[in-house]
């Protein structure tokens, strides 16, 4: 599904290399987690994959189902099935959450040459999915992320994910700022979406989230590279011993 090969990325504005030859492959249906200390380049990876401005790829490639991702505009990547759940979801004053969602869903459908959802079809779907995430009808009417609590913002990201049904979901520290209940809701939302043709790349600082969303593979990232990959046990190892040993080993 997602293939990243020897990816080198620097900031556009300054001469600072962030990713230094990162390689990673997430096959269809698998959940991969990326853990790593602050400043290792985890968020940069998620932004570069989803097409945010400000980064320059100096070497390497990334593809989704064999299609070169890096040449696509962000909206083309989205229509191709890539989704990023933001660490800090953005507020859009004056734009109703529902309007935003429907515009997004139909923009993608249109880009893929599918018929747009009618108001009725859309409403039915969004209400059902919102209920599963305990998102109230009132929250659907509020402007996108404006005045949402941390937990509401993250649940809203998962609602968008559910509505857009992407094949490759990247979650950037979705667990940050969540209390136990919110974490459970978010995880249940994600687990409900797991399927043989959908993959996840879960970026997190803590093992905690991985108790709820069980990964197939765990990668440890440091200084712009994957330094170690392994099974779920690797996350537990980090939880107990910290990154110190792993980093020393990599050096």
């Amino acid at each position: 599904m997602l293939k990243i090969n020897n990816l080198h990325v620097k900031l556009e504005e300054e001469d600072k290399q962030i990713l230094k030859g990162l390689s990673l492959e997430v096959p269809a249906g698998e959940v991969h987690a990326i853990m790593g200390p602050n400043g290792s380049g985890k968020s940069t990876l998620s932004y570069v994959l989803s097409g945010r401005d400000g980064y320059e790829v100096t070497e390497g490639e990334a593809s989704l189902d064999g299609e070169d991702l890096l040449d696509m505009d962000p909206e083309v990547r989205a229509a191709a099935g890539l989704f990023l759940a933001f660490q800090y979801p953005v507020e859009i004053p004056g734009v109703g959450n529902m309007t935003f969602l429907r515009t997004a869903v139909n923009a993608q459908r249109k880009a893929r040459g599918e018929a747009e959802l009618t108001a009725g079809e859309f409403l039915k779907e969004v209400r059902a999915k919102a209920a599963e995430l305990q998102i109230s009808p009132e929250m659907l009417k509020r402007p996108v992320n404006v005045g949402f609590s941390g937990g509401e913002k993250k649940r809203n990201e998962i609602l968008q994910m559910a509505m857009l049904s992407p094949r490759m979901c990247i979650m950037d520290e979705t667990d940050s700022g969540l209390d136990v209940d919110a974490m459970r809701l978010v995880s249940e939302g994600v687990n409900a979406l797991r399927s043989p043709d959908r993959s996840f790349l879960v970026i997190t600082h803590y093992q905690r989230l991985l108790d709820h969303i069980k990964p197939d593979v765990v990668h440890i990232m440091s200084n712009g590279r994957i330094i170690k990959s392994g099974g779920p046990d690797l996350a537990l190892e980090v939880e107990h011993n910290g990154y110190g040993d792993l980093l020393a080993e990599a050096d």
Partner: peptide
């Protein structure tokens, strides 16, 4: 804001309009 909209599938002009 524009990137957020585009990452959800809207093109740049749709995003500005929204």
């Amino acid at each position: 804001q524009l990137f957020y909209c585009r990452s959800r599938g809207m093109d740049e002009e749709e995003a500005v309009a929204l």
